[in-house]
Structure formats: structure tokens, C-alpha cells
Design a protein around this nucleic acid. Sequence first.
DNA 1: GGGGAAGCTTGACGCTTGTCAAAGCGGGGT
DNA 2: ACCCCGCTTTGACAAGCGTCAAGCTTCCCC
Lengths: 248, 248
Amino acid sequence: MPEQNNSHLHALKVSCSNCTLRELCLPVGLNRDELAQLDAVIRQSRRLKRGEYMFRSGEAFKSLFAIRTGFFKTCMSSQDGREQVTGFHMSGELLGMDGISANVHGCDAIALEDSEVCELPFTRMQSLSRDIPSLQHHFYRLMSREIVRDQSIMLLLGNMKADERLAAFLLNVSSRLATRGFAANDFILRMSREEIGSFLGLKLETVSRTLSKFQQQGWIKVDHKHIQLYQTDELKNLISGCIHAQSH
Amino acid sequence: MPEQNNSHLHALKVSCSNCTLRELCLPVGLNRDELAQLDAVIRQSRRLKRGEYMFRSGEAFKSLFAIRTGFFKTCMSSQDGREQVTGFHMSGELLGMDGISANVHGCDAIALEDSEVCELPFTRMQSLSRDIPSLQHHFYRLMSREIVRDQSIMLLLGNMKADERLAAFLLNVSSRLATRGFAANDFILRMSREEIGSFLGLKLETVSRTLSKFQQQGWIKVDHKHIQLYQTDELKNLISGCIHAQSH
DNA sequence: GGGGAAGCTTGACGCTTGTCAAAGCGGGGT
DNA sequence: ACCCCGCTTTGACAAGCGTCAAGCTTCCCC
């Protein structure tokens, strides 16, 4: 692992090497020169402790943020303090794209564990992407991917019953962890039952009960936030009838 | 209305003049030369009859489509034939952005009335947007807007009760029609109760019952697909507690 | 190490919405 | 113009999930 000195980009590349899907990360198919240009634009990475905000709804939009390590939730809040979780995000994912349209962040992004992110100033990325066609195309693809992801969640919320939603959620988390080189069938959830419920359009009691039901049937083992999947086929069966069963 | 000959772009501009929000359409802040370039890229517009497909899920993605006139639904289908409506779309809106990520269309787009669309070959638009920075930025904003729209629907599906969903839906349709210069409080719905229900995550009977309830309370008048809004304030009250009550 | 708050599980009950059914109305095509 | 089919409305009933409540565990901070 040579010449690591002072290259924020290198760190990004390292996080990329953790991903089977290179597309999660930025530097794809760039030559040495283009990499250097990109590296110059990426700001010093920033560390966040659990509970800290990466950005808040209503703040001026200036940058996108790439997660190098850690785990985040994005959520929107109403006046009376209730919140709705709109997504959970892992290393390699890009946050803040909803802020482009109105130049204002449309949601809060909160670290669920100690994390590290890279800041990508948007106007500079935009002009850089004019010089590097493959970068431009990559940005369009990332935004399109976010649209596809949101629509698959719309399907989940509009069509599925509680147990189907939980099964889809567990399989999604599992596959995303596997993509990053972690165990697919034995993991720690970083979020609370209430946050899962908020994301899935369910109450926390329903989440808890449904997990217990899966455990009783021998499909999974639940020890608080420690989840083990024993029979993923049964979980897949549950959602096989649903539209576009595979995860985003 | 001079020199209309052979300019597909002109037609787009005409459809734009119907919109209070110029941002819905493509040619914003372009000079004469840039307009000519853009015009050269836009393919001959295409007419569709009610029920025809603009594109289908699974087809190769080649172009985005701008609606000049008419009304569309987008939806996804499962193996067993059930469908989920993911959106309703009016003149000035751009469809197909979910196809960019995988080079395959992710949903069906079907005309709900006789319509006219412009085809925008994506790779050519992409290279053109490198020469015209404002066009590039506009595309990013359009995709971001789609992300925001999808997230507001996620909130609706995850948080709201049946009557709140219907109220939000009616107010949304109303404001989008007003934006295009149509009456805000007296309109014809182009979709069936079943399609509304599919979009809102409800069964058609619930849609029908809830509309009847609104009518009983004197808030609206329902005559099949002909809707009149009498007391929009009451509808707004219903969703005032919800997160981000305003429409997309 | 201990205390307290926050998170999780489980039960009982009720409401919202889905399901099944029947009847009325309207519109499009022959 | 008429007829048939599809859409809509309305009712009765059932089920799934939310609500309220109590007790328990765990984790964090002092």
C-alpha cells in the first residue's frame, strides 16, 4: 500500500476496495491525472461521533457527502418533534443529493456510530464532471440509483404487510453488509426498533413482535441488536410474491 | 407566433409557456445558439393514445421523455399481474430517469389520456450538457427534484392515515393543475379509484369511502371523476400536523 | 460498581382499513 | 340508440396493526 501521504482520495479508494461494487464509490475508470484533479476537490475528511449531525434539514446545500466508514440515518422531522426515517446508509454511499434541487438540505443526516465522511463541494464537482465525462455519467447514475432505491421503498410501504417489510429489511441489510465484505448472516443492527419501525412505516411494538415471530419459527435468532439469519430462504419466500423483491 | 416550422423545440417552449414554473421544462437560460443545439438533439415528438405505453419496464434505456401535453401514470408490475402505481405525471415533467442507473427502464409509463411527448436521447443530452453548463445543472436539479418527490411520497405512505393521504393527493393535483394554468378547485381526475388507491397504498373501496366522507362534510363535491374543492383549508388542516405537508 | 433512563418484549383491547358482496350508474362501441 | 361491461358506491364483517400498559433488560454515566 504505497504512497498514502496526504491523499484524501486514497482513503476513498481504500474504502472502495472494501466494496465488491465499485460503483458505490467515485473514482471509477479515471486515469492518474483525473484522479489528481478529483483529489484536489475533495475536502479533508471529517470524523463524526455517534449522534452527531452530518447536515440538517434547512441548512444551505453546498456539498455532497461520501461515507468512508460508519453508519448513518437520514430523517425528516415535523413541528411536533416526531421524525420519519427515510433511509439507513453505509460506507461508500453518497448523501445529500436531495439538496441539489432547492439548494437546501431536505433532511437530517445523523451518525448511528462513529463515522468518517468526505465532503464533495458540489459546484466544484459539477465543473470537474464537465471535464471528465465518465465522472459526469457516474453522477447521473448515482442519482438515478437513489431514485430507484426510493421507489423500491415506496413499493414496500404501499404493498407489503408487516412481516414482509421486516423480511425485506433484514435481507437488504444482509446483502449490503455482504457487499462490503462483512458476514451476511450474523450482524449487529445499529438502529433502534423505533427507527426501524419509522423507516418501515410500522410501530416499534410491531417490529419487536414480528422479529419474535421469525425467531419462534426458527428463521432467525434475535438477541437485542445482534441478529443471526438461519433460513434466508424462508424470508425470501415471504416476499417472493411482491414486486421487485430484491433489495436496492 | 413566428417561424414555427420544423422546430421541435418550439413546441417545448410552447408547452413551457403554459407553466408558471419554467423549471419544469428544459430550455432555461439558454441563448439562441444553445437552443439550436438542443433542438437538434430532441427527436420528433410522438403522439400516444390513451392506454399506450411510452416505455416498459425491462426495455433498454436510451432516452428520457418530456411530456408536452397529456397525462401519464408510471407503475411497476409483479409476476402475478398486480401493479403498483409509482406516480402520476403532467405536462412539463420528465420521465425515465430511473433507467439511467442500470440502462434499463425500471417501470412502465402509460398514457391516461391522448398525449404528446418529446424524446431526449440520453447520451446526446449528456454530451450536450457538458457544453452547456446551465443545462447540466438543470439536469442535476431535475433528478434531485425527483428524489425529493419520491421521499415526500415515502412520508405519505409511512406516516399518514387514509383521509390524510387523500387530502394530500387532492391538494397536490390541485396545485399542479394551477401551476399549469388550469382551475385549481374544479377538475377531472384522469385515473380510476383503483389507480389512486394503488398510488396511495389503499384499496379502491377506501378511496371511494373517504371521498364520500369529504363530500358529506361539505369539503368537496364528487361526481365520479369530476372533483370540486370547496374548503381547501379543511383539507390542509387534515395534513397540517404531518411532516412536509406541502406537495412536491 | 451502582443507579437511572432508555430501549425492548409481551399482553389485552380497539380502531382503521381490507375483504367480500351486491347493486347502481355511466360510457363506449357496435 | 341500445346494450354490455367496467367503474363506483355502499354495507357488513374480519383481520391486521396501533394503542395503552406493565415489567424487564441493558447500557451509559456518574
